[in-house]
Design a protein around this nucleic acid. Sequence first.
DNA 1: AAGTGAACCTGAAGGC
DNA 2: TGCCTTCAGGTTCACT
Length: 294
Amino acid sequence: MPELPEVETVRRGLAPVMEDAVVEELVLNRPNLRFPFADNFHELVEGQRITSLGRRAKYLLMDLSNGQVIIMHLGMSGSFRTLDEKAPGNFHHERGKLEAHDHVIFHLRRPDGEQAQVIYNDPRRFGFMLMTPRAELDQHKMIRDLGVEPVGNALDGDHLAQKFANKAAPLKAALLDQSIIAGLGNIYVCEALWRTGLSPKRKARTLVLKSGKPTARALALVDNVKDVINEAIAAGGSSLRDHTQTDGSLGYFQHSFAVYDQEGNACQKPDCIGTIRRIVQSGRSTFYCPSCQG
DNA sequence: AAGTGAACCTGAAGGC
DNA sequence: TGCCTTCAGGTTCACT
């Protein structure tokens, strides 16, 4: 499920628990997720302090005091939950109680001396955890080809135009391409295209003028991508706090989308009489309004 | 080279 | 009830 806003939400939830904590014990309940754990994964993690929990695109980056960083990806079904001595519910009662697909458990000692656990659960196991020295992170296979973050100064109309120039792929595919913009997924691409009134089937190069400059629609698309991501992060943050108060888990949150998973529903754009339709592009569902997305 | 589809894996939901 | 098919928010690999 996780696109950039969900990963950022998870990061913000985990950081207060994990940063500056020492990993007293690391439990791996299977030898692999999507990829095998490194042979020395255990020894590189246990006893280390977590110096920071960062994010790049859809990757969580866990920096350790020995200079290693764990590159984590949640795949389609990965999630974290935390158990904290201070949290409601009973930490000691819960300790050791595993649920199906609990693959990795971090047993932590916080600077104040209290204990906490962070548990990674992933039914489909498309997620992974890879270890690399921080100094080599930018050259890592999973990181080196990533495009710009959607939020921030790096993404602007000129950048998008340069990447979309001569591109025959449909907008849907071009926006999902992590080497162009890193962090967008199926939901927010559908939402951003709908907001901009652009057909997901339109070729990416049609947003670039002969001069190489972005069209007005391209500029609007950039704004809508940023807005949709920022709004989702804001929504995730607020519902995450609610969630943590009840059971201490960190996962996904309910959203209402304008087009994603809205097949058959009326288009919400003012004055549009269209009906949201589902098509398949590159093997993935695209939701859009055939009436106002031209 | 770029673009599309299949594969990886489990579980939930819907049709019969 | 059960069995079957389809689908899922991601990425990589193998093909045209």
